[in-house]
Design a protein around this nucleic acid. Structure first.
Lengths: 212, 212
DNA sequence: CCGTACACGTATACACTGTAGACCCATGAG
DNA sequence: CTCATGGGTCTACAGTGTATACGTGTACGG
């Protein structure tokens, strides 16, 4: 059962961590494994299949966080969400991949199931659980991806400069919020606050249809 | 002022719509414009700059939806969100780009300002507005990207088959939700429902600190 | 022991990609 | 007339993923 495939995935992960996802080329990967590029294709169907396998591995690492069935549902969801963010912080390249394919690998399905059972335990009516699962996971992955891709980062211009591109009359919101916008932002705290708001939303969804 | 650049962007957008983002190569683009690949570099710094310009153009098209200042704030947010989803439905390739770079182009800043003013009008305390703007936009973009990338699609396996990979004892949530999971999902309706939940969340955030 | 099948690896080649550098030429200004 | 400049071309380089054909060691059935 060829540990060779695992070795290849290890190498790919290492390269991605060290020099970014773009640096994971079949040639570079082959060299790292000490083999010819074409040899990789004996163990991996495609490059895209290789990337899928990579995210599968990360998802597996993320799983145990939400599986502790003794804790209350909200805490399990928090743990899963935090683990997800942690993964994309450690492996920024993974964020964009999380959006590409649906949850097809066994581990991904398991992660979805953790959210399902948490929502059920929260009292969300069964008909609403799938939608809320997608809402929650979309937000969590979206936040992680935004952070990893730098969408929340100041970018080439600082807030002041960004506003300066336009007459301040065109940006009433920005000019009124100016003092708050210049503050450095603590994404960790923001993530926690967002989580609380979302969990609160789940609770009201459960209260609206008082079943169970 | 060289309409040539606009002509290039038009061609790039056309190629992306017809054959996907990957088909937008400098060579293909050049051929479409009727020119040599290297000629493009007189009008566009980079390929990445070209892509940035493309999303800028889409964002500009999306702007007017939320700018109608006569409507109530919730309706303006709904309009902006729907327009965003509409854009990524018409141009699925754009979704992944929306996550890459922060809102630096003037049009993007304008879009953020629309959300700012809507949240302020809703009564959200100023200190909370920037966070909630990121929360809302993260979800909307995340939903659009998920839909465009097929994360919500059934994928290679239908729900039944996906569950079959694992013993149903490992997936208590799936087995309990089975009847709902086999239903075909209407993403349009789901998006609307999600929007309502999120707007409700904004309202409670506004009520919590009854300022203004 | 022999032959054969198979897993694994290699070598070569093809069709792409983005883009650096040198050159060319028409147009308009001084 | 001269000269600069904006736009365009050609060539070339260093990459990319991967199809195809070919080798080779190891295991196993006869």
């Amino acid at each position: 059962m060829s540990g060779r495939r695992e070795e290849i995935l290890d190498a790919a992960l290492a390269i991605a961590d060290e020099r970014g996802l773009d640096a994971v080329s079949m040639r570079a990967l082959a060299e790292r494994v000490g083999v010819t590029p074409m040899a990789l294709y004996r163990h991996v169907k495609d490059k895209s299949a290789l990337l899928d396998a990579l995210v599968g591995r990360l998802l597996a690492a993320l799983l145990p966080s939400g599986a502790r069935r003794d804790e209350p549902w909200a805490e399990r969801l928090r743990a899963l969400a935090r683990a997800c963010r942690q993964v994309t912080q450690r492996h920024p390249w993974a964020a964009q991949l999380l959006f590409s394919r649906p949850a097809v690998t066994p581990d991904a399905v398991r992660a979805v199931d953790i959210i399902y059972t948490a929502l059920l335990e929260a009292g969300v009516p069964e008909s609403e659980v799938p939608r809320l699962e997608r809402l929650v996971s979309t937000f969590v992955i979206g936040f992680a991806a935004s952070e990893a891709a730098g969408r929340f980062a100041p970018g080439p211009l600082d807030p002041r400069g960004r506003r300066g591109q336009l007459p301040q009359s065109a940006l009433p919101g920005h000019s009124r919020l100016a003092p708050w916008l210049d503050l450095p932002l603590d994404l960790g705290a923001e993530f926690e606050a967002d989580l609380e708001d979302i969990l609160h939303m789940v609770e009201t969804a459960a209260r609206k249809h008082p079943r169970v």
